[in-house]
């Protein structure tokens, strides 16, 4: 028995070695920094060093953040924008993947696939500038089009009614190509025999999609859903920071932009860490519960 294990270990040694750098990386950059969580409970002064003579303040940082005017509003904005992003971020790629999967023209399919994947690589700093121009109410592309159709101009980035949806749609546009590729990969993994058999039984395209394609990628959908639930408080700092303005603080200010302003600009590290910890704890709870439900109802497990 022991001999067998040694043999097995020997055989798998290269594989274990390959995972080692990733393992060290995680330890170093994900677990070690967790020691910094203590900052959330301190009045942190960098010059006194991390484990130095810092003043402990208990939950004061948390209380302080919650006591700030607008905190409820900011929390709601964050949750609202992030959850709509999560939902659209799941639905749109699945639909597009299923549609692309039905395409017979391989070259066209590949071109579309690449084209929708491209925006994923652009940074929000660049896209922010472009969107400000495209969405401009006076001479932007979108509003010129709306005017031609006899509609009034919409100030997408300056109107509190429109700002959150502009964020959600542009974010989905930027990243749906990435998700589509994952689902397309999953779709190619489905045994073609199943489709043939279904055709024999007289199932049309729609029925095939419902009964073969979707169940075939169910596991991937559940996995991505579970993981994305951890993002319910991540409304996207890069994007909103590059496109928001004082006019839309009311509907667009989110936890991360808020923390940026009070944490980094005003150097209140304790407060910034407290908000970070708050977000992480909520994300942990969400991921754990969704994982539990995925296991219970879809019999799905990652570990």
């Amino acid at each position: 028995m022991i001999e067998l294990n040694i043999k097995k270990l020997k055989r798998e040694l290269p594989l274990n070695l390959m995972i080692l750098p990733g393992f060290i990386f995680i330890i170093l950059f994900s677990y070690v920094p967790m020691a910094g969580i203590i900052i959330a409970f301190q009045r942190f002064i960098p010059a006194k060093r991390l484990f130095g003579d810092q003043q402990w303040v208990g939950l004061k940082n948390f209380k302080y953040v919650m006591s700030l005017p607008n905190f409820d509003n900011i929390l709601w904005n964050t949750f609202y924008i992030a959850s709509l992003k999560v939902i659209l971020g799941l639905v749109v790629p699945i639909v597009i993947a299923l549609l692309l999967n039905e395409m017979k023209h391989v070259l066209l399919k590949r071109s579309i696939q690449t084209a929708i994947y491209l925006p994923h690589f652009l940074s929000w700093v660049v896209l922010g500038g472009i969107f400000i121009d495209i969405l401009s109410p006076t001479n932007g592309l979108v509003n010129t089009l709306l005017n031609k159709l006899g509609l009034n101009s919409i100030f997408f980035l300056g109107d509190n009614k429109w700002f959150p949806y502009t964020m959600i749609l542009t974010d989905t546009w930027k990243d749906f190509g990435y998700g589509t590729i994952i689902y397309l990969a999953a779709l190619t993994g489905i045994n073609p025999n199943l489709y043939e058999a279904a055709q024999m039984d007289g199932a049309n395209r729609w029925k095939q999609t419902i009964h073969i394609s979707l169940p075939g990628i169910q596991m991937v959908i559940v996995l991505l859903m579970v993981l994305s639930l951890g993002n319910l408080l991540n409304a996207g700092f890069d994007q909103i920071f590059n496109m928001y303005s004082p006019m839309v603080y009311e509907s667009g200010d989110i936890l991360d932009t808020f923390v940026y302003r009070i944490g980094l600009l005003d150097a209140q590290f304790g407060v910034a860490t407290a908000v970070g910890l708050f977000k992480s704890v909520i994300a942990l709870i969400l991921v754990s519960t969704s994982y539990y439900f995925a296991y219970k109802f879809a019999d799905y497990r990652i570990f």
């Binding site: 170093l28 950059f29 070690v32 920094p33 020691a35 910094g36 900052i39 991390l50 991540n234 996207g236 700092f237 890069d238 994007q239 991360d256 923390v259 940026y260 944490g263 980094l264 590290f269 910034a272 860490t273 970070g276 977000k279």
Partner: peptide
């Protein structure tokens, strides 16, 4: 998308 937290954790590391 968590630029700040990354920065802070980097600093802490």
């Amino acid at each position: 998308s968590k630029a700040i937290l990354l920065l802070i954790s980097l600093m802490l590391t």
